[in-house]
């Protein structure tokens, strides 16, 4: 249950940041609909944001391990 709460909080933070970042990257002049080119941009942006999150997570994790081994 604690694990699940943390997972939910974490997913929420991810979704909030992703929405804000991708809105800023993809919608410069908000029109009367979210048109298909904007949707395509948001979809790509989400995938790149997930890639970045995972990459950062791995890079940070391996760095922490290296630092621990040095001590």
């Amino acid at each position: 249950q604690v694990k699940q709460q943390i997972a939910v909080a974490n997913a929420q933070e991810l979704l909030t940041k992703m929405t804000e970042k991708c809105f800023k990257k993809c919608i410069n002049k908000p029109g009367t609909t979210l048109d298909s080119s904007e949707q395509k941009c948001v979809a790509m942006c989400m995938d790149r944001y997930m890639d970045s999150w995972n990459l950062v997570s791995r890079a940070y994790s391996s760095r922490l391990q290296k630092e621990r081994q040095r001590l």
Binding site: L15, M18, T19, C22, F23, C26, I27, P30, G31, T32, T33, L34, E38, Q39, V42, M46
Partner: peptide, 11 residues
């Protein structure tokens, strides 16, 4: 409106 659309789309 578009921010909410975007948020729903992401979700």
């Amino acid at each position: 409106e578009r921010f909410i659309d975007c948020s729903n789309f992401v979700l």
